[in-house]
Write a protein that binds this DNA or RNA. Structure first.
Length: 327
DNA sequence: AAACTCAGCAACCGCATCTTG
DNA sequence: TCAAGATGCGGTTGCTGAGTT
């Protein structure tokens, strides 16, 4: 349906930072309602605020809510965010449900200002969680960055040099990134999350003359030694890992490929036995950076020797690095 | 001390999805 | 079933303060 008009566009509605008086008015009004907000749209008038209802909701959910925990993120929280993001992508609200007292906005900001940069400096693509191709590593993965402690950076230097010397790795990485892009594209495509959409997509795919060659490529990808990174496998009570592994498992078997909606409830996804068979739409292949024909064959990847890292790098970050090479 | 740069974060915007009549 | 309204979500913007030149 079309977009509804928003009161935020009304002339005279205040925007910008909230004052203490406005905060107090909003909190007191919601307290009066017993903590229950009936209609956000009607709230500003009822609370005597010259604000958009949307703005009130945002202010409440991101700042004024009593159960919000502020302050720096702990290491555990940071690691959990990385694991969840690797499995879910930019599903900030879903990620926020796994961190007590943290809001989606706060996590998103923390990701963009801290974690993303940290991963980039380690030479890991923060979107795909795969190793960046060597030609994209401006300074050997940014290991001279102050974010990496000197001992860790020193330990990683020979590793990065070894990677840079692996000419075939670049191609292989691109191949895996292609797969990653495909999975992401499929998961972000709401049309294939419904049975009707799946059937329509199947019909579209089956009518395409290039399906066979594309599926051959996908099967080739499926028979490589791709494994779900361990840092995604070892998250207790998080079903998303199963979802991610499920995608991989599907590729390791013969067709049909099973597709899940990333927007779907994680638990619901994993408990639901009625999986819908699907094939990869040609349009998805066209949406990624590389042509399928550019990847005629695949060689198993060799994992560089990481033994030199054993004593110098935090096990979690070491695992992330190892996983980015492995995958 | 002033000007400039940049990181961090609160808040906004527009679209998607859900709810309701 | 459909349309309109309400809410949620994720990307983006812009302000602020700290650090640097």
């Amino acid at each position: 349906m079309g977009r509804s008009p928003c009161c935020c566009h009304d002339a005279g509605v205040k925007k910008g930072p909230w004052t203490e008086e406005e905060d107090r008015a909003l909190v007191e009004h919601i307290k009066k309602q017993g903590g229950h907000v009936g209609s956000w749209r009607g709230l500003p008038r009822a609370a005597g605020l010259n604000r958009c209802g949307k703005s009130c909701r945002l202010r409440w959910t991101n700042y004024l809510r009593p159960d919000i925990r502020r302050g720096n993120f702990s290491d555990d929280e940071e690691r959990l965010i990385i694991r969840l993001h690797a499995a879910l992508g930019n599903k900030w609200s879903t990620i926020a449900t796994h961190l007590d007292g943290r809001t989606d906005n706060e996590i998103k900001n923390y990701w963009n200002t801290h974690i993303k940069k940290k991963l980039l400096r380690m030479g890991i693509d923060p979107v795909t969680h795969q190793r960046l191709p060597p030609d994209l590593l401006a300074d050997g993965g940014g290991l001279a960055s102050p974010l990496l402690s000197p001992p860790g950076a020193a330990a990683l230097q020979p590793l990065l040099s070894a990677v840079a010397s692996l000419g075939s790795l670049d191609t292989a990485l691109r191949q895996f990134q292609l797969l990653q892009h495909l999975l992401n594209a499929i998961n972000s495509n709401s049309d294939v999350t419904t049975a009707a959409g799946l059937m329509a997509t199947n019909a579209m795919v089956n009518s395409s003359s290039n399906v066979a060659s594309f599926q051959e490529q996908m099967n080739a990808l499926a028979h490589t030694n791709y494994q779900l990174p361990a840092y995604l496998r070892d998250v207790p009570s998080f079903s998303g890992q199963d979802m991610a592994q499920e995608r991989i498992n599907c590729n390791n078997n013969t067709a049909p490929v099973l597709i899940r909606s990333s927007a779907e409830s994680v638990d619901q996804c994993c408990n639901d036995a009625a999986l819908v068979p699907e094939t990869y739409p040609q349009e998805v292949a066209a949406s990624v950076d590389w042509q399928v024909q550019d990847f005629p064959s695949l060689e198993p990847l060799e994992l560089p020797n990481l033994s030199s890292l054993e004593s110098d790098l935090d096990p979690f970050w070491k695992e992330i690095l190892e996983s980015s090479f492995r995958s």
